[in-house]
């Protein structure tokens, strides 16, 4: 029954916190709101103020349209991807060469 030695304090802590929470909660909930703390106001719009127009489906269609900027962005992305692939290929080829010579790439140590 050795494990009780460790279980007991844990249980005691649990029960303690349980009691604590039970006694604590009603105290917090008992605060009643004071009556009528707010006052109603009406907003005065500035001159030339227009409420923002709601977005419609045609706006979405516009946002989906292909623009020159997007094509340009895509081109740059592919350029970068191809560059990285090119660099990776160089390294991969070097790895391959070293590997068949009996070297483990990255460490230059004999296997």
């Amino acid at each position: 029954m050795n494990y009780l030695k460790t279980v007991k304090p844990v249980m005691a802590c649990g029960i303690f916190f349980l009691c604590f929470s039970v006694f604590k909660v009603p105290e917090l909930l008992c605060q009643e709101p004071e009556d009528a703390m707010t006052i109603a106001v009406t907003e005065i719009k500035e001159e030339g103020y227009e409420p923002p127009a709601g977005l419609s489906l045609s706006d979405v269609e516009n946002a989906r349209k292909l623009t020159n900027k997007r094509i340009y962005g895509l081109a740059v992305l592919w350029l970068l991807i191809l560059l990285v692939i090119f660099l990776v290929r160089i390294q991969a080829r070097d790895d391959e060469k070293l590997y068949w010579k009996g070297y483990y790439s990255g460490t230059n140590k004999l296997e």
């Binding site: 109603a40 009406t42 719009k45």
Partner: peptide
């Protein structure tokens, strides 16, 4: 934020002295 808000005079008069009310400014 709104440029300004307006509180009705009747509401202002209803506030007891030495007390405060919250209002929405935007």
């Amino acid at each position: 934020l709104p440029g300004a808000v307006k509180v009705a005079m009747s509401d202002v008069e209803a506030i007891a002295p030495n007390s405060a009310r919250y209002f929405e400014y935007g």
